[in-house]
Structure formats: C-alpha cells, structure tokens
Design a protein around this nucleic acid. Structure first.
Lengths: 171, 171
DNA sequence: CCGATATAGTTTGAGTGCCAACTTTCTGTT
DNA sequence: AACAGAAAGTTGGCACTCAAACTATATCGG
C-alpha cells in the first residue's frame, strides 16, 4: 500500500520553538490570536451551509430588530456602514433579507428577514450555540461571566477613546 | 437589559437600544468586537509612523527568531502563509527585512531584520507598550494574568481542533 | 536513478474591512 | 422658497485575509 498523506502530522518545527518575546503576554496580541482561532473554528462549523460566519451577526441583528436601518445595523455590528452595502446586496439577492424604503424618510431602508432568512438564522444560531458551548468548555463556567464582561469593557473603553467628543442624548 | 424588538413600522435608529439577542453574552461575538476595538486603538497610536499595526507582530517575530522561515512565521503569527508574501515584499523593499535562501534547502528563505528594521521594531514596540498598558488599565491587574491565559487557552484549544480535523469520518 | 509525494513560497480570486468622496434626501435658517 | 448643512446609503481606492492552484525543490520508496 502506498504511503498515504499524513495531515495529522505535526506542523513542521513551527510554533513550538518560537520566541514570542513581549508578544507572549500582551493582551492585544493574544486577543487577535484568540479571535482568529474562534472565527476560523466557527467558519469550519458553518462551512457546509453557504453562509459565512460574518453574516451571522448581521442576520441576528436584523432578526432581533426588524426595520433596523443600515447605519444602525453597522454600528451595532461594529463595522463601517459602507462594509454593509455589498453584504446586504448579497443577502437580498439570496432572498434572506428584505430591504424597503421608509415612507417618511426616503433616505433610509428598513431591513427585515424573510422566511428563508429566519430559517438561515435558525441554522446559524444552532451552529453558533455549538461553537459557544465549545468556547464555554474551554473557558470554564467559573470564569465565563468575568471573561465576557472584560471583553465588553475593552470594547466600550476603547470605543469611548475613539469618539471622546460624542454626547449621549439618552434622557 | 435588552428591550423588545422595535415595531416594523419605525426603523431602529442609532439612539435606540439595540436588541443583541443571544449575541449579547456570546464569547465569540464579544471577542470579535473587543479585538476590533483593540486593533483600531493600536492603529490610532501608530498612525503617525509609516508602519501599520499589522506589521508589528511580523517584525517582532523576525527580530526574536532570526532566520525564521516564512511558513513558520505565518503560523506563529496566526496567518496564512500566502498573506505574508506581499507583506514581506514590502518590508524587504523598504529595507526593514532581509530575505536569504537557505543553503541546504533552496525552497525556504531565512528572514532577518536589518538595522532599519530593528529601529522600526523599537518604535513600534514603544507604541505597543503604551497600547498594552492602556489595555492593562482597562482590565485591571487582578484579572490580567487569568484573562491572558484564557485567551491563550482558546487559541490553543481551537487550533488543536483544526489540526485534528473536525470530522469523524474516515476515508 | 525514477516516480510519487511532501514542503516552501507565490499567484490569483473572492470576501471583508476602512476611509473619503459622492448622491439623494431631510432639516434648519433666512 | 432658497440655501446650507446634516444624515443615509453607495462608490471607489487601498489594505488585509484565506483558500486553491501553481512552481520549484526536497525526500521517500522502489
């Protein structure tokens, strides 16, 4: 029998002998690496269906906030509004999202999920649930809440840095 | 505390509270948002100099591991090897990195920093230090070690998933 | 030595992201 | 009503990323 390919073999002499220097324990670097790993693991879970993980949050936010505008969606999703244009074009073309003009403000669109969009969201949610349970298992139940709240604190603290002149008119 | 979905008659606006649904407390989503915020904050710090933040880890890893190959570098950096090609072309063209053929294996390159590369690394390290001290302040000294080690655990656990393959099917 | 296979790096194509400039529409001032 | 400015969305330019196909070199089995 010919020697078969060996995909499980150790990935060369790569990452085990590497000196990371100060990167080793810097939050920014570890954050990036963990995020990339998480994203790719999720991508593997959703690989079979035709929807990529980046679309998941988009569909979820539309499903939870029917009639949301593209700008509000982009802010909730942490992306620039221009990033959303090709994504929504694709989602509309595939019949997952409906885009309607708002009658009293003809600049904005109202986004809603179609029935197919709801089905896709349900499928993706199942994948995301598995993914997040996997992450939960890695993190452990004791640290989970604290971990997530720290992530959220990083997000809000650095966003405030960015828009330090922005005022909230929230009552 | 999430509010109920907006009625379809009125689009959600930026001032409205967005219902994040299960995203609210999912590790994957928070990880993505925190990483994006961290990256952009770092980008603001390095805005003045000619080197973008994505190059920082590359330079650091070459500086700490002189003679590293491109594949080993890409794995240490958590990026695909093809991503590295244009980056290294640019770094070499700008005189920050030297690329030499390995004598006994003419497929691989040996990467080292030039003097200018070391200077650039030093500058970027100063920026990164500031950035990471900022993150430390946000996280707080009590949780920092645990937080970083959890990030690292996510990274290694999901990378092992990938290496072992996610399918139980055997040909 | 030869042929099959593995590895290092490059190229290409698609997706995603930001920012700045732009069009269209709305709003406030006069 | 007319104009200026703000806001929603689109477009174009550039950067970064992955995956697959490709070239060149190395290695293993016979």
């Amino acid at each position: 029998m010919p020697r078969k390919p060996n995909p499980a073999k150790r990935p060369a002499r790569a990452a085990d002998a590497i000196d990371y220097g100060p990167l080793e324990n810097w939050v920014g670097f570890r954050l990036r690496m963990a995020q990339a790993a998480s994203f790719q693991a999720f991508a593997r879970l959703t690989h079979d269906m035709r929807i990529r993980p980046g679309r998941f949050a988009t569909l979820m936010l539309i499903g939870r906030n029917p009639g949301i505008s593209q700008t509000a969606l982009s802010q909730a999703n942490g992306r620039d509004k221009s990033t959303l244009t090709p994504v929504l074009n694709d989602l509309v073309k595939r019949g997952l999202v409906k885009r309607e003009r708002t009658p009293d403000d003809r600049r904005t669109y109202q986004l809603t999920l179609t029935a197919a969009g709801n089905r896709a969201l349900k499928q993706l949610t199942a994948c995301a649930l598995r993914h997040d349970r996997n992450l939960d298992r890695i993190i452990g139940p004791r640290d989970r809440t604290r971990f997530v709240s720290l992530l959220q604190r990083i997000e809000t603290a650095l966003s405030n840095d960015k828009a330090n002149g922005r005022s909230s008119k929230r009552g």
